[in-house]
């Protein structure tokens, strides 16, 4: 297989089975997937459909039971714990529903946490400026609103100039006005950094800002659609 340099992610037959005693739970049942460089993909699906498991495997947080997943020329499914850590460190930015900021560090310091160990980072202040939080750089998480905390998390995720940005329910804990601000930040950094962005959401309205939309159900991709009329985040309503 000659890899197309434009393809960042490839997965084929990706399967994940959780075993709990005698009980087997099939979280992923043979996923085939590709993502192009800079693409903004929204992943939809009900709870338990396997979308988070998929994101965790391509993000190097979890391992597959069968099948292959590739990031550029790294075979993720062949990497050990150490290799996966290095992969996350060098290439991946994460944004989660509950922000996962370090409470003892200010916004700037939370971003610096990543810039200190990354290979080609931007400065923390640049990253914060990208999400519109330059003014709040010296505040601790406890002093920021939920939306602000999530934007710090985005700044922290993109500060390393990652090739991929993985977001699991980034607006899940936010009201719609704040959620839209967060989405704006995401689309803006997607454009600015050129990172392939995968966003998991329950919120079907978000599909309008994507280049492509994928729907998961029962561990499989059941629908895939290319969005021809991509909207700006500010135009989305829910």
């Amino acid at each position: 297989m000659t890899p197309n340099p434009d393809i960042v992610f490839r997965a084929s037959g990706l399967t994940k089975v959780y075993r709990n005693g005698a009980l087997e739970v099939h979280a992923l049942r043979g996923i085939n997937f590709q993502a192009r460089k800079g693409e903004f993909i929204v992943i939809l699906g009900p709870s338990g459909s396997g979308k988070s498991t998929f994101l965790n495997i391509v993000g190097g947080l979890d391992t597959a039971t069968a099948g292959e997943a590739w990031f550029a020329d790294h075979q993720l499914t062949a990497l050990n714990e150490k290799g996966l850590t290095q992969y996350r460190r060098d290439h991946v930015g994460f944004v989660f529903q509950f922000y996962n900021l370090v409470p003892s560090l200010t916004a700037r310091e939370n971003v610096q946490l990543v810039t200190e160990i990354a290979r080609h980072p931007m400065t923390a202040d640049e990253a914060l400026a990208l999400v519109g939080l330059s003014e709040r750089a010296d505040h601790f998480p406890a002093q920021l609103s939920g939306g602000e905390q999530q934007r710090v998390a985005i700044a922290r995720a993109i500060a390393k100039n990652p090739e991929v940005l993985l977001c699991d329910e980034p607006t899940g804990a936010l009201d719609s006005a704040t959620g839209i601000k967060v989405l704006e930040a995401l689309t803006q950094v997607n454009r600015a950094v050129g990172a392939t962005t995968l966003v998991i959401t329950h919120n079907a309205a978000i599909r309008d800002i994507a280049d492509r939309v994928i729907r998961f159900a029962d561990g499989r991709i059941v629908e895939e659609s290319v969005n021809t009329t991509k909207k700006a985040a500010s135009e989305v309503v829910w």
């Binding site: 714990e81 850590t85 290095q86 996962n100 370090v102 409470p103 003892s104 946490l113 990543v114 922290r156």
Partner: peptide
């Protein structure tokens, strides 16, 4: 524990 797990997610090694 939560902060430390978050650091692991960010790409910090077990050792770090």
């Amino acid at each position: 524990g939560r902060e430390l797990a978050s650091l692991r997610v960010l790409g910090f090694t077990n050792r770090e």
